[in-house]
Amino acid sequence: MARAVTNNRKAFNTALAWLVGLLIFFPILWTVLTSFKTEAQAINDPPLFLFFDWTLENYSVVQERSDYLRYLWNSVFIAGGSTLLGIVIAVPAAWSMAFVPSRRTKDVLLWMLSTKMLPAVGVLYPIYLLFIQLGLLDTRIGLTIVLMLINLPIIVWMLYTYFREIPAEILEAARMDGASLREEILYVLTPMAVPGIASTILLNFILAWNEAFWTLNLTAANAAPLTAFIASYSSPEGLFYAKLSAASTMAIAPILILGWFSQKQLVRGLTFGAVK
């Protein structure tokens, strides 16, 4: 039972929470606002908040100058591809761990997680060399594979936690009903785990979208996703606040919207079910 709270107290909480919330959100808000200003207005002293001449000019300039859509497509391809590939490999693995656990299951899971802790920079050059050898450098396929591999442990973990909540009896019932293993996974397990699989996809899509080590180091012109697109604005000549803001807004908007939808699942997903 929540205790009755006076309206005064509630108003105070509300004001404080909104203040803090807006403060945290402010950099994003400011970026979005600035993206609609002219360059001169963007560095106006004092800063302009809402009363300026709104313009969409920056967006078209950014698209023209840097071909935003190509970066966007690369981001979608790499993040989407790596996530789906990861799911296809992880679903059977998670099924095994959740429904046919052995004494080693926990060790395998922890080992998988530990590969995430391997510092990427420690193996950067070997991967770089291998990529040259295999002709994967600066290709979408190459990056898709790498991002799939770095997120695979998280995908397996998340699916494992979701699968474990599905009663084994239902899968046994399918087996008794004459379903083969493939049918059991395809017709019974997967549809039942749809919410879990969906949030796994969402979270890993976000992680892959924002990944900024491999995407910066293994791409040049051809396969560069939005992370690299933005990084190109860090050089001094690109220092136009309004355009930087427009580019930033375009880079984060898709994922921000996606993220807001999945924020509830995010907690369970990222904590591997350890916090509910």
């Binding site: 919330g21 924002n210 992370t227 933005i230 930033s248």
Partner: peptide, 18 residues
């Protein structure tokens, strides 16, 4: 809650540049 969670979805290169 949505306001507070938002920075998590911002890609590191963007947040650093901004």
């Amino acid at each position: 809650r949505i306001l507070v969670i938002a920075p998590f979805f911002v890609m590191p290169t963007v947040s650093a540049l901004v």
